[in-house]
Amino acid sequence: MTTVVELEIPAARLGFARTFDRVSTFEFQVGGMIGGSSPLVWTNGPDRETVEQALEADSSVEVIASIADDADESSADDGVTPGQNDRWLFRLEFGDGVKLLEQIVTETDGAILTARGANGRWMLKLLFDDRESVSACHELFEQYEYRAAVTRISGIDDLASAQTPLTETQYETICKAHELGYFDVPRGVTLKELAAELDVSHQALSERLRRSHAALVSAELSERTAPMEIDP
């Protein structure tokens, strides 16, 4: 079944790490990564000059051209701080980390749907024909030490209705923990016993449960403040 995978990769592995260090509020969104030419990248931050200087000083990318911005010309009249809602478009050339990632995704019959970043991390949404392609891609990411953290896996048929923020492994772990009474008071199974049932180490299970809890709490808080969106 066609599968969409959402994952995060540290900027240190793909690019913009130095820009994030220099500009803490820096964010970006790539307008298409595969196609041969250098991609167009929307960026934002405190102001255009600060962002452009940071990009120029970042050895992981090359600024080919500064294209345009979508600043709201009426923002000053509306009392909005200048630069607060502005974005600036650059044509950038990425380094070997991004080029290898594109190659891996393409060779495993995948496609990059979106690529954006904030807080020192890239957030990617990838499309694959089947779960075997997903596994093959993930194995190559591990081989080349991309440190990719999968945040969500969805079937293309249920993208509109998918509500769980958990990955497939996290979902299965939570279900097994609930089934065996791990969340009961008193607990029906210890963490060590649950780890043995799932055939994982005590530490790996502890980290998996913490990530699952964090994802569920984050989704619940987001649900109470704004509607969930599939696309950024």
Results as ranks from 00 to 15, higher is better:
residue 30 V to A: 05
residue 18 R to Q: 12
residue 205 L to K: 03
residue 162 A to K: 06
residue 143 Q to C: 02
residue 214 A to L: 00
residue 161 S to P: 01
residue 199 D to I: 02
residue 198 L to W: 07
residue 76 A to K: 10
residue 179 E to V: 08
residue 89 L to P: 08
residue 194 L to P: 11
residue 107 E to C: 01
residue 226 A to Q: 15
residue 183 F to Q: 00
residue 55 L to R: 13
residue 8 E to A: 15
residue 101 L to S: 12
residue 212 S to E: 00
residue 78 D to A: 11
residue 31 G to E: 14
residue 33 M to S: 06
residue 210 R to D: 05
residue 21 D to S: 03
residue 5 V to R: 05
residue 212 S to A: 10
residue 220 E to W: 14
residue 155 G to S: 13
residue 102 E to A: 04
residue 62 E to I: 03
residue 155 G to K: 11
residue 26 F to L: 06
residue 159 L to P: 15
residue 219 A to H: 07
residue 70 D to M: 05
residue 111 A to I: 04
residue 206 S to E: 02
residue 38 S to Q: 10
residue 111 A to H: 07
residue 177 A to Y: 10
residue 25 T to Y: 00
residue 214 A to G: 00
residue 225 T to G: 13
residue 155 G to P: 06
residue 144 Y to F: 15
residue 53 Q to H: 08
residue 101 L to H: 12
residue 39 P to I: 15
residue 91 R to F: 07
residue 120 G to S: 11
residue 176 K to E: 14
residue 223 E to C: 03
residue 204 A to N: 08
residue 133 S to F: 04
residue 41 V to T: 10
residue 143 Q to H: 08
residue 218 S to I: 05
residue 194 L to T: 10
residue 112 I to P: 12
residue 43 T to G: 05
residue 33 M to L: 14
residue 6 E to P: 01
residue 33 M to P: 03
residue 48 R to T: 05
residue 72 D to Q: 01
residue 146 Y to H: 09
residue 31 G to C: 14
residue 107 E to Y: 00
residue 221 L to E: 11
residue 212 S to W: 00
residue 34 I to S: 15
residue 51 V to N: 08
residue 21 D to Q: 09
residue 106 T to G: 06
residue 57 A to T: 04
residue 48 R to A: 12
residue 197 E to S: 09
residue 83 G to A: 04
residue 86 D to W: 11
residue 69 D to I: 08
residue 71 A to P: 01
residue 63 V to Q: 11
residue 122 W to N: 05
residue 84 Q to M: 09
residue 117 G to F: 15
residue 130 D to P: 01
residue 35 G to H: 06
residue 185 V to C: 04
residue 129 D to N: 02
residue 195 A to I: 11
residue 196 A to P: 02
residue 186 P to W: 05
residue 62 E to T: 10
residue 2 T to R: 10
residue 195 A to E: 10
residue 115 A to N: 05
residue 56 E to Q: 13
residue 24 S to D: 05
residue 205 L to E: 05
residue 100 L to D: 03
residue 107 E to S: 03
residue 156 I to M: 02
residue 103 Q to N: 07
residue 73 E to P: 10
residue 159 L to G: 12
residue 92 L to F: 09
residue 16 F to H: 12
residue 93 E to T: 06
residue 168 E to I: 01
residue 135 S to T: 11
residue 60 S to I: 06
residue 47 D to G: 01
residue 43 T to I: 12
residue 164 T to R: 02
residue 79 G to M: 11
residue 125 K to P: 06
residue 96 D to R: 15
residue 16 F to I: 10
residue 25 T to K: 03
residue 61 V to C: 07
residue 6 E to G: 03
residue 220 E to I: 12
residue 70 D to K: 12
residue 167 T to E: 04
residue 149 A to C: 12
residue 64 I to R: 14
residue 177 A to E: 10
residue 199 D to Y: 03
residue 154 S to G: 00
residue 67 I to D: 09
